[in-house]
Simulated scan of single mutants.
Amino acid sequence: MKPGFWIAPEGAEQPVSVFPIGEEALDVQYKGLTASGALAKLATLDSEELARSCPRAVELLSTIASAIGSQAADAPTQLFRLEGLNDLERRLIDDVLGEGEVAGVVALPDGSLAQIQESVLAGIWRIRLERDESHDYIEIGAVPEIVARAAIDLTAGDVVIGPAPEGTMNALPVLAEIRERALAWRPGQRSQTINFTLLPMSPVDMSFLQQTLGNGPIQLMSRGYGTCRVLATGVRHVWSVQFFNAMDTIILDTLEVGGVPVVALAAPEDFEDSAERLKQIIEAYFT
């Protein structure tokens, strides 16, 4: 097993199972394209014909471009449903938005999953609810509301610390610190980090920590500068944040106490940049 707060069960390499968000039944020539490849494909098509064939998709993209330009990181998210769009229009939106750095899943109370995929335009997200394909929508914001809500509504409000197993060294004081910080944290405050890479924690300590905090409903992966896995624990405001190198070895293993970790959030400056880039795409391909 790998060291770290979160240990993959049965030797699994990836704790996060990220499902495809795009139109799985679309024509093969469109599937698997990167963002640059998708736009290159668009460049070979007749822009006037695209605009005539997909007027609602082009209108929706224009609306999103205007909306994200005025979005603030701490403001409520804006949601745009895709009902009424045909397969060609959905495919066009998939091609324009592409797949960005952050993806993941949220486990819902009914046992289904919500699939999360950031677009190549940071701050624009694609969300699909597994239980109902009609719940397929685009959301603008620092992080989708379903992630922020699940982090609060589907986790425990306190840490229940049971008897420590034999061989425990430092887990009890660390758990007491986590509990104190989690109960005291309020929105707007900075997150606090506990770095296990620097702490003298035994395998028994780490196992007891994981068992005590439990697994939460959110699993996210960011592939920006290296790979980062963000997992909500079963305790409100407590997150496992792990950074991995190219060999999939943990190089930084932390718990963060606070809101959704910043590594999974769109930055304030991303909104204006994404608005400008999306407007350029619309002007280049659809006008």
Rank of each mutant, 00 (worst) to 15 (best):
S17E: 14
V18M: 04
P20D: 05
E23K: 12
A25H: 10
L26Y: 06
L26K: 15
L26P: 00
D27M: 12
D27E: 12
D27G: 12
V28D: 10
Y30I: 07
K31G: 00
L33W: 04
L33R: 15
L33C: 05
T34C: 05
A35G: 15
S36F: 07
G37F: 09
A38V: 00
L39T: 05
L39A: 09
A40P: 01
K41A: 14
A43G: 12
A43Q: 12
A43L: 04
E48Y: 01
E49T: 04
E49A: 14
L50Q: 08
L50N: 03
A51I: 00
R52S: 11
S53Q: 11
S53D: 11
S53H: 02
R56L: 12
R56K: 15
A57I: 03
E59W: 03
L60Q: 03
L61N: 04
S62A: 15
T63L: 09
I64M: 10
A65G: 14
S66H: 12
A67M: 10
I68D: 03
I68H: 03
S70Q: 14
Q71Y: 01
A73F: 01
A73T: 08
P76L: 07
T77S: 15
T77N: 15
T77Y: 04
Q78E: 15
Q78T: 08
L79D: 09
F80H: 14
R81W: 13
L82F: 11
L82G: 05
L82R: 13
G84D: 05
N86V: 02
